[in-house]
Design a protein around this nucleic acid. Structure first.
Lengths: 275, 275
DNA sequence: GGGTATTTGTCCGTATGTATT
DNA sequence: AAATACATACGGACAAATACC
């Protein structure tokens, strides 16, 4: 009596999914079948399915049917490392990913020169209207879109001699090592800011996210600093939130045991009395 | 011709929101007015509004109307700190929050003894079916729900003498300091795992999230280790993803200038050619 | 390639319920 | 109590995508 019908239908289907009665990837009954089974109109059944869609439990394929979404094994990215070694672009990424026997790939950076604006201006602490070098890459793992990454460098670095920042599409040794060798600039630390937001159109297209905007993306902004405490680089990385997680370690921490990932059976946090 | 009508209506309204023509917090025309303006049926107008809702651009209030959502100023939580000082519960949180002239509050921990399961079992590396102490807190800032936090401790710590883990609702000096004093156990490091997921019913209720599940939550799992590399604590913290972000610092990093947060005018990452 | 059946997507109209002012 | 505005539910019609023969 209390809940509207479309919610009761959705709850019933959700239970069948979570209990395993409807397996991952399997097809739900068609809208017409559900309409008969629950004695509701097709539109009401569709409202129930929409409710499940916004929760990421099912997906619809026109002409085919409605399916329980596949379980996704998350990629894990470690944000902490040696302060002086975090590669400006792709370096550690390549090592870490190959270590897991996956095949990483990244497009050659697309190099642009832009006027600093917004967060680039803030985080890089450059003058308004000053110019920055932007190096943009698409990164893949096993051929699957993994992340979009754009690094920004103050134009002053180029003027001081780091010409390859704007010339070479690829800087094999990593831009951090290159800047140290070329300018004697050491990266001594960095700050990451992590947030999630809705993807823009480009990101949705690249990651092939459903265009209904329910899958968010991580935005990780890494500002790197030299010994004087001046920012030398801002790297913005975008990852789909439904298949990525991040790890941060502080102090002395044992290596992680490669526990076989399995059930989502989270420990109950208690019967939430919000009082 | 290309896009369905409800999408054209939604796009038009979105443009008006993003251009500022419809200000944050302002009311949209009613469904009946929109029906006339766009020469569509009320159901089609409602489809357009649903599309905007799932993207978090507008919200509906029964009996009142449809409104552009308010901009939210995010809370910032720093994940990195002194390895030996991260308070088990609330300690640093209280300091950091008061430093920003906000009023933090936390409920007394609700203490339970549970059988370890799922991630608790994995991260705490205890035997299956062994028991753990669970200490659950609700935390507020300026009276607004801020986070849900549950810390799990192996029962062995209690057996070795840390009785206040199960006795005292409040451990004023922080559980990390308490364990060091009582058992000589030092926390020498911790590992955080960060992911986002849909909220469960308890979380939605506590944070007053719209029950349509479009606002995700951050889940931060912190496993703390002693000098032997054994896990001594697992703390799971939940934060609404629409109003929180996290900061991680590595190496030598200058203090952050308290830049006045403003426009979302992100630097363009380029005209996403996915080729 | 074409044709047909199936399935979901869009759009309409209407009626009634519920929350707010 | 009345008016307003959104929420739920019904029904029908046609379009678009897909699969299969």
């Amino acid at each position: 009596m209390p809940d509207p019908m479309y919610r009761r239908i959705a709850d019933d289907l959700r239970d069948k999914i979570e209990s395993g009665e409807l397996a991952h990837g399997s097809q739900l009954p068609t809208e017409l079948e559900l309409r008969e089974r629950y004695d509701a109109s097709r539109n009401t059944v569709r409202d129930a399915i929409k409710w499940l869609i916004t929760r990421g439990l099912v997906e619809t394929r026109p002409g085919q049917g409605t399916f329980v979404v596949e379980k996704i094994e998350p990629y894990i990215t470690v944000l902490t490392g040696e302060a002086s070694e975090s590669a400006g672009e792709g370096d550690i990424y390549i090592q870490e990913v190959t270590a897991k026997r996956r095949v990483p790939k990244a497009t050659d950076p697309r190099v642009e020169i832009q006027a600093a604006a917004g967060v680039v201006l803030e985080d890089l602490q450059v003058e308004p209207k000053s110019q920055v070098v932007s190096r943009h890459q698409q990164r893949f793992i096993d051929g699957i879109p993994f992340s979009l990454q754009t690094s920004f460098y103050p134009m002053g670095l180029v003027e001081r001699g780091a010409l390859r920042l704007i010339q070479a599409p690829d800087i094999a040794e990593g831009t951090v090592a290159y800047l140290r060798k070329e300018l004697g600039l050491s990266q001594v630390g960095y700050r990451d800011k992590i947030r999630v937001r809705a993807p823009d159109a480009n990101e949705s297209a690249f990651f092939r996210l459903p265009d209904d905007g329910r899958v968010a993306v991580f935005e990780v902004r890494r500002t790197a600093f030299d010994e004087e405490g001046d920012p030398i680089r801002l790297t913005i990385s975008i990852y789909p939130a439904d298949r990525n997680q991040f790890t941060v370690t502080v102090g002395k921490v044992p290596d992680e045991i490669p526990a076989e990932p399995d059930v989502t059976s989270d420990q109950a946090q208690g019967a939430g009395r919000t009082g």
